[in-house]
Design a protein around this nucleic acid. Structure first.
Lengths: 221, 221
DNA sequence: TCCGTTATCCCGTATTCACGTGATACGCCT
DNA sequence: AGGCGTATCACGTGAATACGGGATAACGGA
């Protein structure tokens, strides 16, 4: 236990009080080490950019900061210190903040209403390659996901070739170009397209592409 | 505190040992009450169907059960007791189990590696209208979501009319049908479509539909 | 006041599509 | 041995598309 190096943490948070709360909380945990804390992204990024500093394992990142916002800083953090995992720790439970943080690659999203225990176990989870989400954020994401998970198993299955051709169609190639690219004849492509229409029960290419997206036929790769 | 009724919990789990562990754990928590525990879905569903029984607030549901699988039971639970929230509690972290559980409307997904504290706080979160996810499940879902969140803000914006027409195109209508449905002329539709192609930088309808999905232009409604 | 965006409408044409109606061949399952 | 799905190829035709090149009108910002 004691020979594994502690998890190195950097806190970016402008509120002095909350900063101190976190500092005291982490000080009590043996294998977590609060390396630095910063009040703005600008200063934090300068620290990360300095090659003489060791890279932290985890960054706890507030979003509403004076100057550069936390979300804006994420790409720079990823750039300067690619291996550092980011846990957003903020008051905001706005949908767009959550979605942006995720698409920018955050490994966790906690609210400041979280207990210190939850923050510590969140850090441990992320350090182990997992993720941590505030329950209310998780609820929001589950609702979001429910809509985006296609229930594809309606017996509709395209062959590999058909999916290939449909993909190219959706990318803008005309049948002749698809034939050339696949090294097959035009009429073959035409036949495949007809089969696709039958299976998807559509009558033309735009709706075939649309239905394929709705059914999630493109999801798997 | 003590005048709020306890959260009523039902456990569906075939492993005798784990069932007892949960029973003992919940017995120690004041505001949680393990109402019943069942070894199979069939028996549990019979209990839920019996109108003389009170409906539980939470069901902890294992997936790998003798007879009917946990996932199969979810729609029946939703039917017999719509207000009951379901937390999946299983060994399986298979992607399809997670996705199926979510699309069937589970409010939580915990693994049996979870500590009893995590299970209790998960129950509390769900009872409060939030959700609970095992960190490794959360990680998987975040990765999944990252792909599905489009970064639409590339300056590409269709007018309302254009989006309307593109939607209908993706549903399989030909330009003439779109014109009739919108009560405008064929040439007007044609012009709109040209503008759509310009904005999306494509040359035909299938790729316009494809690109719209990729950019998430259909996401907002 | 002028320009950009949006929405509406028109003509003509070469290209492409959708589809009816075929064919051959391979593998798999029964 | 026969059937089913897949992949390949072919011809012809009417329908639809993509696009060049126009136009008018309303609205709002520069």
């Amino acid at each position: 236990m004691s020979n594994t190096p502690p998890t190195r943490i950097v806190l970016i948070e402008d509120n002095q009080e909350y900063r101190d709360v976190i500092k005291l909380a982490l000080a009590e945990v043996e294998d977590l080490e609060l390396e630095e804390k910063f009040g703005t992204c600008e200063i934090a990024l300068r620290y990360l950019q300095d090659l003489s500093n060791k890279r932290p394992d985890i960054i706890l990142l507030d979003l509403r900061l004076p100057g550069m916002l936390g979300l804006e800083a994420i790409p720079f953090i990823k750039d300067y210190s690619p291996k550092t995992k980011i846990i957003v720790l903020t008051l905001s439970d706005s949908e767009s903040d959550v979605l942006n943080a995720i698409s920018l690659g955050a490994s966790g999203y906690l609210l400041k209403s979280a207990t210190l225990d939850e923050i510590v176990s969140g850090i441990r989870a992320v350090q182990n390659g997992a993720a941590t989400l505030d329950p209310s954020v998780a609820h929001f994401l589950l609702q979001k996901l429910k809509k985006h998970i296609p229930q594809n198993a309606l017996g509709i299955e395209l062959s590999q070739r058909e999916l290939e051709i449909l993909t190219l169609l959706g990318e803008g190639l005309v049948k002749k170009e698809i034939a050339d690219q696949l090294g097959i004849g035009y009429t073959t492509v035409d036949t495949h397209v007809r089969h696709i229409y039958e299976k998807l029960q559509v009558r033309n290419a735009p709706s075939a592409v649309g239905k394929a997206y709705k059914l999630g036929l493109f999801n798997d790769e």
